[in-house]
Amino acid sequence: MMVTQTKFNSLIGFLRIGDILGLQKFIPADFDWSQKGGPEDVTLLHYAVLCLGEENPGEKHLKTMEWMLRSGADPEHELPQKHPQCYLIWKRKNKRGTTIEIPYAGHSATSLAFAWLEALETSEEEWTVEREYLKNVVSLIARIPSLHRKKVAVAEGVVDLWESVLNMSTTHNVTLETEDGNVTAHDHVLMAASPVLEAMLQSAMKEGVHKHISVTDSSGTSVALFLEVLYTSSMRGSPSHLTMLAALDLAHRWQVTTVVQQLADVLLEMITVDSFVAIAAAAVLKGLSSLTRACSVFGAKSPQVQAMLKKGSLPTAVRTLLQPDSAKSLETAKKKRRTV
C-alpha cells in the first residue's frame, strides 16, 4: 500500500529524528517499501542512509533502520538510472570547499551507503561520525536477512498438475497420523522440502521404517492445508486463522521456510480483534518479522487491543510486542534476588 505524499513526508520526519515508535504508529501494515517520495524522491530506506547528514546520526537511526529492514524494506531496491537528483553534504565553515555530492541514479540503499563511505574516506575533511554511521549501516544491512521472496509467474496448468499429484493418494507412501485421522503424501516431496522430515524418513526409527509420522497434536485439516500449500503454493478453501496457525506451526517445526512465509503472508490479511492475540503470539514466538510488524501496527491502533493491554490480559509475548520497554523492565525485576 502506498501512502499520500503528505504522510510520506511525515514518515521521513520520524525517520530523521530516529523516532521508531512514531514510524511504527503511522506506517501502514501493508506499506509498499518501494514507494518513493519526499524532496529527494527516494525510498524510506534511502532516507535512512541519508541520515548521515543529520546533526548526530547514530544508534537511534540505526535501530529505526533495523526495524525497517526486518519489516520488509529492500536494501537492494534500485532507483531509476535517470534519477535527476543528488545529495550533498558540507562543512558549515566552508561550504564551497568541502561540499561532497553523490547522484542517486541507479543506487540501491546498499550501494548508496558504500558510495558515500568511499567519498568520505577519500575526503581531506574530518567525517569521523558520518563514516562510522555508514559503516554501521552496511554492517546492519549485511546482518539482517532479506525478507523478500522472489516470485515467478507460473501457468495455472502447472498448479493444476501439482494439485493432481497431491490428490493421487494411491501413489502416496507416507502416512501422517493426526488427532482425527490419517493424511498421506509422497516421501520424496516431504524430504525435498524439509530437512527435518528427510532425517525422520531416512532414519532407522519407525518414521523411516514404516513411513509413519505421528502428528497427533495437529488436526487433519491443518496437516492437509500444509500439504496443499507445499504442493501447489496455493489454497482453494478459506481456512480459519486457527487452522492457518496450526499449519504454520507444522511448517515452522519442520523447517519448510517457503510454506512458513506463504502462510504468514496470508495471515497478514486475517488480523482482527478476535484473531489478534493468537496471530501476534505466533508471529513473535516464531520470529516472523513482517507478521510481527503488522500485529504491532494493528495493536497500536486498536482501542480493543489497547484495553486488553491496560487490563493486563495479554500473553507475555504479545505484551512484549506492544510494550517492549516495560516488558524488559518486568523481566529485570523478576530476575532480582534478595541475598539472605
Rank of each mutant, 00 (worst) to 15 (best):
L190A: 07
S108R: 06
V42A: 00
S313A: 13
A193R: 02
F14Q: 06
T170K: 05
D325Y: 04
H212A: 07
I279H: 10
V229P: 04
R70H: 09
F8N: 04
M200P: 06
S194V: 06
A142F: 10
L15V: 06
A278M: 01
L291C: 13
M270G: 00
V152S: 10
A155T: 04
F26E: 15
R70C: 08
R143V: 01
E40F: 15
S34H: 04
A327Q: 07
I17Q: 06
V129N: 04
K206V: 08
T232L: 05
I17H: 01
V340P: 14
G22N: 00
V273R: 09
Q85H: 01
A113N: 06
L245Q: 01
H188W: 10
L230C: 05
Y231C: 08
D249V: 01
I213L: 04
I144Y: 09
M1G: 15
K334M: 08
L11T: 08
H77T: 05
P315E: 03
K95N: 07
S219Q: 08
E177T: 04
F26S: 15
Y231R: 12
R319I: 00
M205R: 12
A153P: 15
V42R: 00
L120A: 08
Y87A: 06
L62K: 05
A251K: 11
K36E: 15
N173H: 01
F31M: 05
M68D: 03
K310F: 02
S219P: 13
L134G: 01
N94H: 14
F276K: 00
G287W: 08
F114S: 11
M2G: 15
H61F: 03
G312N: 00
V266W: 03
A282Y: 02
S233I: 01
V138G: 02
A246M: 01
C86G: 15
H46Y: 11
K301W: 09
G106A: 08
L291G: 11
P315G: 06
V284F: 00
G157E: 14
Q202C: 11
A113E: 09
G58Y: 09
L62S: 07
A29C: 04
V159P: 03
E125F: 10
L263Y: 02
L242Q: 15
D325L: 02
G72H: 04
H148N: 11
L117W: 06
T171C: 03
R337T: 15
L248E: 01
K335A: 12
A105H: 00
W116S: 01
L23C: 05
V266I: 09
L285H: 12
E76P: 12
H77F: 06
I20F: 08
G37Y: 12
Q5A: 06
H241M: 09
M168S: 12
A307N: 10
P239I: 05
R143D: 10
W116F: 11
L330C: 07
E156Y: 14
A264K: 03
S329V: 13
E54I: 02
M168I: 03
I17K: 04
H148I: 14
S238M: 12
I89M: 02
Q202H: 10
K310M: 07
D41T: 06
E156V: 14
